[in-house]
Structures are given as structure tokens and as C-alpha cells.
């Protein structure tokens, strides 16, 4: 028997009430129940960061969070970064610097970067490397990703 529970979560500003299987992760529910497939699945053990989302503003691996644990939380996914079709400064910087190659890790990178900049609007290179160390990129566009995060931080200052 599969136990389910109702949860209420605010996802990208929209309040949702859902019935979720208690053994399903937030990643499962975002992708399979809400159709928010921007959040990616790769290692499912918290090592690659492809599934990074914000829960109440903190970057977490959604593969290691049960959906029931997110009950009452505010969740932001990559789909929530742009407003009214306008890209966020971070998204623009990723495009501008060529940070997205195959693109599969990019939603996770963006969310980790978003959390980093919210907490530390003027990061050093070392801060960015540390802040994104949990997000693997096999195209290894780390330098472009880092440049993009720094550029977004600078743009916010101006």
C-alpha cells in the first residue's frame, strides 16, 4: 500500500494543494505531478546538484527532500526565475557568457547561484566556486558559469 498525504506548497508563487505519495521526493512531485520538468534528475544521491531548487529561500537537492517535508514551504524552481517572460539578470548573464552548453545542469546551477547571490550579493570568485561546488557540469563550463554569476552580481550593483 502506498501512503499518501495532502500537502500545500507554494511553487513559483502559486499555491498548490496536492496529494503526494509519502515516499516520493520533491523532485518526483515537481517533475511528475506538477509537470515542472526544468528541475533535472541525475545522481539522486545529492552529489550532482541537477535537481537544486529553493525551499524557503535555501538551495537544496530536491532528490533528498520528501515532498511531504515541503508541506507549507515556498518552493522556487528554474521556471520561477523569469517574470512575465522577462529573463532574470542571472539568466541573462548565463546566456551572455555562454554558460549553458548542453544545458542539463543549468537549472541547478542557476538555482544554486540564485541562492548564493541572495545571501551574498558581492561574492568573490572563491565564494562562487564554493557556492556552486555541489553542481556538476560535465561540459565543464565552470569558468563561463562563474563569470556569469559574477556578471549578474555586478549588474545588480550598477
Amino acid at each position: 500500500m502506498v501512503d499518501t498525504l495532502p500537502i500545500a506548497v507554494t511553487v513559483n508563487g502559486r499555491r498548490r494543494t496536492l496529494e503526494v505519495a509519502v515516499h516520493h521526493t520533491l523532485l518526483d512531485v515537481l517533475r511528475d505531478q506538477l509537470g515542472l520538468t526544468g528541475t533535472k534528475e541525475c545522481c539522486v544521491v545529492g552529489e550532482c546538484g541537477a535537481c537544486t531548487v529553493l525551499v524557503d529561500g535555501s538551495a537544496v537537492n530536491s532528490c533528498l527532500v520528501l515532498a511531504v517535508e515541503a508541506d507549507g514551504a515556498e518552493v522556487t524552481t528554474v521556471e520561477g526565475l523569469a517574470t512575465d517572460g522577462r529573463l532574470s539578470p542571472l539568466q541573462n548573464a548565463f546566456l551572455e557568457k555562454g554558460a549553458a552548453q548542453c544545458g542539463f545542469c543549468i537549472p541547478g546551477q542557476l538555482m544554486a547561484a540564485q541562492a548564493l547571490l541572495a545571501q551574498n550579493p558581492h561574492p568573490t570568485l572563491t565564494d562562487v566556486h564554493e557556492g556552486l561546488a555541489g553542481n556538476l557540469c560535465r561540459c565543464a563550463g565552470y569558468q563561463q558559469i562563474t563569470e556569469a554569476v559574477m556578471a549578474a552580481a555586478e549588474a545588480a550593483v550598477r
Binding site: 526544468g38 521556471e79 539568466q91 551572455e96 549553458a100
Partner: peptide, 22 residues
């Protein structure tokens, strides 16, 4: 070096990889 074709999809989560197709 214009923006990558498919770049916008990649930074918005709209790019459909095989697992994203239902």
C-alpha cells in the same frame, strides 16, 4: 558569438530532454 540557439530554453528550464517528454 551570438546567444546560443536553444540558450533561452536552457536557462528557463523549457528545453525538453528525453526524460522531459511525456
Amino acid at each position: 558569438s551570438p546567444h546560443r540557439v536553444g540558450g533561452r530554453e536552457r536557462v528557463t528550464g523549457q528545453q525538453q530532454y528525453v526524460a522531459d517528454i511525456r
